[in-house]
Amino acid sequence: MDRLTKAEEPIMKIIWDKGDVFVKEIVEDLPDGTPYNTVSSLVRILESKGMVGHKAFGRTHQYFPLVKRGEYRKHMLKNMIVDYFDGSYKGLLSQILEDEEVSQEEVNELKALLNKDS
């Protein structure tokens, strides 16, 4: 599974959120005013990557996700752990716990999650 580019991510998020969607609807939901033709091209790229499929309605297409958001997250997180933490989930968790931007409440919630299955 390929990593989404910065241009593809917001489009894929809209597709995940809406399910079946036309390019026109994606354009309407994008905050930056990306042109229709650009969005259409990016959606076709997502289709070539196997991320979305389509149903034809005459000359227009309705797109839908082929890869679930959770599947994509899991795959990307696994790659990040391998690439940046030598495959160590402990290393990732240590980094999160050392991050000064993580609140004590979030640290406590993480600890509770870890202790839940113990």
Rank of each mutant, 00 (worst) to 15 (best):
M1C: 04
M1D: 08
M1N: 06
D2V: 09
D2T: 07
R3P: 02
L4D: 11
L4R: 00
L4S: 08
L4C: 06
T5G: 03
K6N: 13
K6V: 12
A7C: 00
A7F: 08
E8T: 01
E9I: 02
E9W: 09
E9H: 05
P10H: 15
I11E: 10
I11T: 04
M12T: 09
K13D: 15
K13Q: 15
I15V: 15
I15R: 09
D17V: 02
K18W: 04
G19F: 08
G19K: 07
D20E: 12
V21S: 05
V21N: 08
F22P: 01
V23H: 02
K24M: 05
K24E: 15
V27N: 09
E28Q: 12
E28K: 12
E28C: 00
E28N: 13
D29I: 01
L30R: 11
P31K: 04
P31E: 14
T34Y: 03
T34V: 06
P35L: 01
T38L: 02
V39Q: 07
S40E: 14
S40V: 00
R44I: 10
R44A: 11
R44W: 12
I45F: 02
I45M: 13
L46D: 15
L46H: 11
L46R: 07
E47R: 14
K49G: 04
G50M: 08
G53N: 06
G53C: 01
G53E: 06
H54P: 01
H54Y: 14
K55C: 00
K55G: 02
F57A: 00
F57I: 03
G58A: 01
R59E: 11
T60M: 03
T60E: 09
H61Y: 10
H61L: 03
Q62D: 02
F64C: 03
P65T: 05
V67S: 03
V67C: 01
K68I: 00
R69Q: 13
G70Y: 10
G70C: 04
E71K: 07
E71C: 08
Y72M: 00
Y72A: 07
R73V: 14
R73H: 14
K74G: 11
K74S: 14
K74C: 01
H75Q: 09
H75G: 04
H75L: 05
H75A: 12
K78T: 14
N79W: 02
I81Q: 13
V82F: 00
V82I: 11
V82G: 05
D83G: 01
D83L: 03
D83V: 00
D83Y: 00
Y84Q: 10
F85R: 05
F85C: 02
D86F: 03
G87Y: 03
S88W: 04
S88Q: 11
K90H: 12
G91M: 12
L92W: 12
L92D: 13
Q95G: 11
I96K: 06
I96V: 13
D99P: 05
D99V: 02
E100Q: 15
E100Y: 06
E101G: 12
V102R: 06
S103G: 07
S103E: 08
S103P: 05
Q104Y: 07
Q104E: 15
E105F: 04
E106Y: 00
E106D: 14
E106P: 02
E106V: 12
V107K: 15
N108G: 04
N108E: 15
N108K: 14
N108F: 02
L110G: 08
K111S: 05
K111R: 12
K111D: 10
L113E: 14
L113S: 11
L113K: 13
L114R: 07
N115Y: 11
N115H: 09
K116A: 08
D117H: 10
S118E: 13
